[in-house]
Every structure is written in C-alpha cells, then in structure tokens.
C-alpha cells in the first residue's frame, strides 16, 4: 500500500440523547492510500455514515467527536481545527458524495452557478476559467453536451444524471480524499454500473483516495481494494476485499456475506443471522455481536475482543476467529 493520505486513529463519535450517551462510532482506526478504494460496509445503525461525516468534520451537536480522536489528511490533523480552517479543507482536500444528490445540489440555482462557486471558494481564478473547468468536469463524468447542461437546474436532470453532477462537483478541486455515502443505492443497476465505472476510472486517474460507504457487499466486491466491516460502531474486520470475502474471520462478516442471495443456492433457505442489530443505547457488555453469534462463549459475553492483526494485512476483533489465518507477528 502506498503512503496513507487519510489516516484515522481511535475515532469516536457520540451523541447526547434523552436515553443517554450513544456512541455511534467507537474508537475505530483505518487508513487509505492514494488511489486506493476502501469499502466501509455495515447495516443500518452500524456507524458507517457517521464515520464518513466525521471525516469531513460535519458532526453537529448533539453529536460530538471525541477530542482524543485523530483524523489526518496528508499528515495534517483535522480534529481541533477551527471551523474557519475546516471550511478550507472541506471541498478542497476532502469531498463527499451523498446518497441523494439533492443533498449536494441547490434546487433553485443553476448547475454552473453552483459549480463555479465551489471552485472559486477555494481558488482565485477567473469566472471564465472556472466555467471551463466545470464544463470539463461534467464531460468527464459522461454528461453529454456539457455546455448546455451547465445552464440547467438540478430538477431538469434525471436521477442518474443528477448523481453525476454531484460527483463532478465533488471532484472539481481534485480532492485528496473522496467520501461516498451510498451514492448508487437509489439508482438502477444499469445507471449504477455507469457511475461505478466512471468513479473507478476517475480515482485511478487522479489518485484520489476513496472511502465507499455502502450496505451492499457486492458493490464493494467489484470496486474496493480493501474492506472494513462495521458492527455497532466498531470495525470488526478489515482486510483486502478478496481475502475477506473468501474467508472471513469474524462471524458477523461471515453471516453478512452468507446472507447475500447470490451466494445461496436457489430454492434453499438463505443463510441468515438470527436476531437483530442491538440498540446502541443498550449494548451488551463484551462483544456486541455475542447475542447473535453461534460461536459465542462466556468470554465473548464479558470482554470486548481487541483488534488482532492477521497475516496478509488483515485484522479482526474476535475471540473465536473463523478460518483462523496466522496471526501476524507482533
């Protein structure tokens, strides 16, 4: 792996609620190198989206990033930066694509207004030059007759086209890190494939580090280099995509992979994980997956397993690793 451009260490995010303190993200660490794609996978409530927002410093009260956390982009610490400086980082060094492109786009402004604003917020260039760059960006994401389309409003685009505009906008300032939060979940497979192929190409061209947040393991399988599986606010397993999908170490990762329909024989009941995700306000002591796990023993119910490194650049938090690969030498 090349040098990490995004380095997250012990990131914790908690929310003060009426039911008490909810730790949505619990001391997670990961890093992404230039041009690398990390798939962040988990079910609803696992903390994957909050992680993405935290990387952009977009956690608002009642949410709070633990001040002991560290998020570094190109060695520069983002935690503790004043809002004024964070604004300069956001959109320049790190950008985000959301599930719904209308989160990014303002419905009452033309596309060109929005894109030119995004460029000129970070760079002193003429409007003409900014417009030209916006036009090129639209062309790059496969929008035909970009010149005319620049003058359109978001509502005049189809869903897939809108998502492309959002992607083009995010890439305008050639960010070092791009965080994508389920950007293709609402799209049809054919449009999803178009967007995946474009994102894949763009990232390899520009060397942008990509964090792809999704609940869809099959998308991650095709797109990512590495995958991190989240459960109840923690990364329970991390490693190269093919290794994790072929032989998962953590029983939750195994359960998740096993329940994908295409992994199962037709007509035979799908493998399923029993029970449901625990409420974050009321996590069991020890491993949060223990109540649903077939391999759980007493130690799982009392002690939280620590992240253990394994050979091949893998790591998992489990007392009873499946398909036990050799633990990496300490």
């Amino acid at each position: 792996m090349s040098k990490a451009v995004l380095d997250v260490k012990d990131l914790s995010v908690s929310f003060r609620t009426r039911e008490g303190l909810v730790t949505a993200v619990n001391s997670i660490s990961f890093s992404v190198g230039a041009g690398e794609v990390l798939g962040l996978v988990g079910e609803s409530g696992s903390g994957k989206s909050v992680t993405g927002l935290a990387v952009l410093g977009l956690i608002d009260p009642p949410g709070e990033i633990d001040p002991r956390s560290s998020i570094k982009i190109n060695e520069r610490e983002l935690i503790g930066l004043p809002e004024e400086k964070l604004r300069r980082v956001r959109g320049k060094d790190v950008a985000m694509i959301f599930q719904d492109p209308m989160t990014t786009l303002n419905p009452v402004l033309r596309i060109d207004t929005q894109m030119i604003e995004a460029i000129r917020a970070h760079e002193k260039i003429s409007e003409k030059a900014a417009r030209e760059r916006a036009r090129q960006a639209l062309e790059k994401v496969g929008i035909p007759s970009a010149d005319e389309r620049l003058k359109a409003y978001p509502g005049q685009f189809s869903g897939g086209m809108r998502q492309r505009v959002a992607i083009a906008t995010a890439l305008l300032n050639r960010p070092t890190v791009l965080v994508a939060d389920e950007p293709t979940t609402a799209l049809d497979v054919t449009i999803q494939a178009q967007i995946l192929s474009e994102v894949q190409q763009l990232c390899s061209e520009t060397g942008t580090a990509l964090v792809w947040i999704t609940h869809d393991l099959s998308v991650v399988a095709g797109l990512a280099d590495r995958v991190a599986v989240m459960y109840a606010g923690r990364i329970v397993e991390e490693g190269p995509v093919s290794a994790v999908l072929e032989a998962p170490i953590h029983p939750y990762a195994a359960g998740l992979i096993g329940s994908v329909p295409s992994r199962n024989k037709r007509g035979v009941p799908l493998a399923q994980i029993r029970g449901m995700t625990p409420s974050l306000t009321n996590l069991p002591p020890g491993c949060p997956f223990a109540p649903r796990c077939d391999y759980a023993t007493d130690i799982c119910r009392s002690t939280m397993p620590e992240p253990t490194p394994y050979e091949g650049g893998r790591a998992a938090r489990c007392h009873h690793p499946l398909s036990a690969p050799t633990p990496a030498a300490a």
Binding site: S158, G160, M161, D188, V189, T190, I191, Q192, A193, Q194, L196, S197, Q200, D216, L217, S218, V219, A221, G222, L223, A224, D225, V241, S242, L245, I257, V260, S262, R263
Partner: peptide, 20 residues
C-alpha cells in the same frame, strides 16, 4: 452483466450506454 456480484472482486465495471 451489470449486477455487482460477490465473486467478481475488483472487476472493471462496464456500462450500457444511455438511459431508459
């Protein structure tokens, strides 16, 4: 062809041209 599959790791996504 465009359905992402678990067993197709790190594949080159291809796309059907145009939209419905």
């Amino acid at each position: 062809d465009e359905v992402p599959r678990l067993d197709a790791t790190k594949k080159q996504f291809t796309a059907l041209k145009g939209e419905i």
